[in-house]
Design a protein around this nucleic acid. Structure first.
Lengths: 282, 282
DNA sequence: TTGACAAATGACTAACTGGTCATTAGTATA
DNA sequence: TATACTAATGACCAGTTAGTCATTTGTCAA
């Protein structure tokens, strides 16, 4: 394990227990068994560390959600959605704790922008899921429904982030599927309407465009990290496809599928999916 | 305005903007135009200040909820409930911000206990509301419903705590009434069951008993704060009633009603209601 | 074995924190 | 005016912090 990873894992544990501000760099390095100076060889500052942590996990979670929404069949999409989310939270419960503790803390402008960015991506995924599932029937209530779903995600995750009881995640997902369907099919008094969303959008900065120039360096850095494997070869082929399209969509999809499960490639595959969708031969 | 109040108001603003830990005592006193020493004449420590703030607001909010749950007519109980809550949040939006920012921060054991205490009181109020409204029909799902309601409270308050858009609180309340009714009447797959609640209860310490000895000194201190008025006289009579019961319930209820709206008396009236209900002549 | 380079160290700095207390300013009474 | 009292001040203390950098340690190839 690289020093950077060691620091990130150790820091995450401490942040989850004590919070970001209450954890000193000294404490982190002590737990790692390295010196304070060594920390600053891996990270420029303490802030850079928390930003790296947020990216590391949010990329995975966002990519997971997006993949489910794009690929699950309609009849169990909602279940898969809730189930995979709570699995993520369960797997990365330390990270979830940090997120809840530091929720929107003002200590760093950049961090807030980052979180808003991921929040927006997730909202988009949820919205597209809603539209696919209920179509025109929720035209007036879809934003409300999105808020409801995010509310369920939030509320119920607090349950098992703070209390260490074993939970039946399948049952949880089933329960939320039912609730969501109820709200979707019978709501007649929406509150979060289109224009309210419009007003809120002021606070949102423009999104990152998914550009070739952004993805290429990312692929290259990932390839350096990885040892030779199917994944690495797939990455190389995808890089070629990015520079000069030649494969049919099915091949591209297969290549992406090859790398999708690799924890370090979730984000790359997410970006690639979006990119190739945007640049379909038409 | 007393120095204590000045400090509390100024500090609340700063805490809402920057968070508790990120705001120094020096900053607070600078904004107040007083010296650092003067701060410590009003508060023993910075911690005592945040505890005082939490008490000040949570007492009002808790008492409001409890009053609504006890007194609104069934047909618009749910609406009144949501409406008054969001009015509270709207009125005290700086406080709501602080709460969200510091949510479960580990910096103070006492503070966590305090918050758990208020949370428990609010949960009890919500649960009793649910039972009254839906009765046996929600026997299996009432805890789930409680979580749903708390989830709505949480999610939608984030909406207007973080974005400064004018909101139609009546509409919001109406919308949530509908959602709550939907969940209450059609849920068949509960997740938060009785035994799960039982397991969670480990983390909760025993509650404060509502004893005469607790209420009396509180009444006395409130009476000192107030100038002569109907409210003060009512307080005095209630104090007498506490020591030696003599009035019929209707009179007691009237006296409490007299003081209920006074911001400083919300908590006292809440305690008195509970006390007299527990010690009914029977 | 030597020399050259990179990796790691931890004493140190400058800034800031919550909290204290000898001193001073202000005020009411005699 | 003189006295006695409280209210208020801000320099100061001890402690902690993020971040730096001269120095040491480790690891290669020659």
């Amino acid at each position: 394990m690289s020093k950077k990873q060691l620091i990130m894992e150790t820091a995450l544990e401490l942040f989850a227990k004590q919070g970001f501000e209450a954890t000193s760099v000294q404490q982190i390095t002590d737990h790692c068994g390295i010196s304070k100076g060594a920390f600053y060889l891996s990270f420029k500052s303490k802030d850079e560390l928390i930003l790296a942590l947020i990216d590391h996990f949010m990329m995975q979670i966002t990519a997971d959600i997006d993949y489910i929404v794009r690929n699950a069949k309609n009849e169990d999409l909602l279940f898969q959605f809730y189930y995979s989310i709570y699995q993520s939270f369960y797997k990365h419960s330390d990270f979830a704790k940090v997120l809840m503790k530091e929720q929107s803390h003002t200590f760093n402008e950049e961090l807030i922008l980052k979180m808003q960015h991921y929040d927006k991506l997730i909202s988009e995924a949820i919205l597209s899921m809603i539209e696919r599932l209920y179509g025109n029937a929720v035209k007036e209530t879809k934003y409300d429904l999105m808020y409801g779903i995010k509310g369920f995600m939030n509320t119920y995750s607090q349950l098992f982030v703070f209390y260490n009881v074993p939970l039946d995640l399948k049952r949880l997902a089933e329960s939320l599927v039912e609730k969501t369907n109820l709200l979707a099919r019978h709501t007649t008094v929406p509150f979060v309407t289109e224009d309210l969303v419009e007003m809120i959008k002021f606070n949102q900065p423009g999104d990152l465009t998914t550009a070739k120039e952004q993805i290429l360096p990312l692929i290259e850095s990932k390839m350096e990290e990885m040892k030779d494997s199917i994944e690495k070869e797939s990455l190389m082929l995808l890089k070629g496809e990015l520079l000069e399209p030649m494969f049919p969509p099915a091949v591209v999809k297969g290549l992406i599928e090859n790398i999708r499960r690799h924890p370090h490639c979730k984000w790359v595959s997410y970006l690639l999916i979006r990119y190739f969708e945007l640049h379909k031969k038409s």
